[in-house]
């Protein structure tokens, strides 16, 4: 039997953990993006830089996030040097450990997305721009960035969704975000199915909103891929009939 009153109370309690989930997500996604740009830039650099960046991406994409989190949160305290360093107030705090791990992790995945997107910019376009005498900054702004950005968005949306899901691991290092609250209510009430269905609905809603927002951004960024409008937006009547024109139709026929 589903107990609606209990579900309501649970949802209310879980929503109190949502701000921390969003904070973890927002801070890590932003830091991860900056890191990813840096790594992608390194991968186009000299041999040493390329090797370092490649090793970083290989390690962080090849190991589980939870292992990385434990390594940062529990592992670093093994060294007295770390415990007595200036960074200890941060590395002792589960929030900063989670942010650090999530950023390093998403940075590795996102740098690959950026690399792929940059590689997808047609070489001919870049050459043509150079032949026209475009300086590097203009070339990047007008040619490379617009193409690469549209190319990267769908994969980046997937990565962001993986990120919102990954913030739930912070509950294991005692951060009181949504999943932590759910696990606590479960251990107090033993009503796992109701509690976790509730938490699942919250995460799902979050991800649906995120996916919609990025899809909207994608739509807004690619007007050239959209079907040409048949009539003025918001008007059901075709333009020719609206103004009472006889003769050649102004709408309906596909444009060349």
């Amino acid at each position: 039997m589903i107990d609606l009153a209990f579900m309501g109370d649970t949802a209310q309690a879980l929503l109190k953990g949502l701000p921390l989930t969003l904070e973890l997500f927002g801070v890590s996604a932003l830091a991860g993006l900056v890191l990813a740009v840096l790594i992608a830039w390194m991968r186009s650099g000299g041999r040493v830089l390329r090797g370092l960046a490649g090793a970083y991406v290989f390690v962080f994409r090849g190991t589980p996030l939870l292992v990385q989190l434990f390594l940062v949160y529990y592992g670093l305290s093994q060294f007295p040097e770390v415990r007595h360093s200036f960074a200890w107030p941060f590395l002792r705090d589960p929030f900063w450990c989670a942010v650090l791990t999530l950023s390093l992790n998403t940075g590795a995945y996102t740098s690959e997305i950026i690399r792929g997107a940059l590689a997808a910019v047609p070489a001919g376009q870049v050459e043509a721009a150079r032949a026209c005498g475009m300086p590097a900054a203009l070339l990047f702004r007008r040619i490379i960035a617009p193409v690469a950005l549209r190319q990267a968005l769908p994969s980046y949306a997937t990565e962001l969704i993986l990120m919102t899901k990954a913030t739930s691991l912070a509950s294991i290092v005692t951060l009181k975000e949504t999943m932590f609250v759910a696990a606590r209510i479960n251990s107090e009430t033993y009503r796992a199915i109701e509690v976790f269905l509730c938490a699942g609905a919250i995460y799902l809603a979050l991800n649906v909103v995120l996916a919609r927002a990025i899809a909207l951004l994608e739509w807004w960024l690619s007007p050239h891929l959209r079907r040409p409008p048949d009539a003025l937006p918001g008007l059901d009547t075709p333009l020719d009939r609206a103004v009472g024109l006889e003769g050649p139709r102004l709408s309906g026929a596909p444009r060349p």
Binding site: K165, N186, A192, I193, F196, A199, Y203
Partner: peptide, 22 residues
């Protein structure tokens, strides 16, 4: 596919483990 890819894997594990035990 939407639901299972939209909720954290950890949540599915908790749900199956604790829910299954219940």
């Amino acid at each position: 596919t939407t639901v299972l890819r939209g909720v954290p894997e950890l949540l599915v594990i908790y749900l199956v483990y604790f829910g299954g035990s219940a």
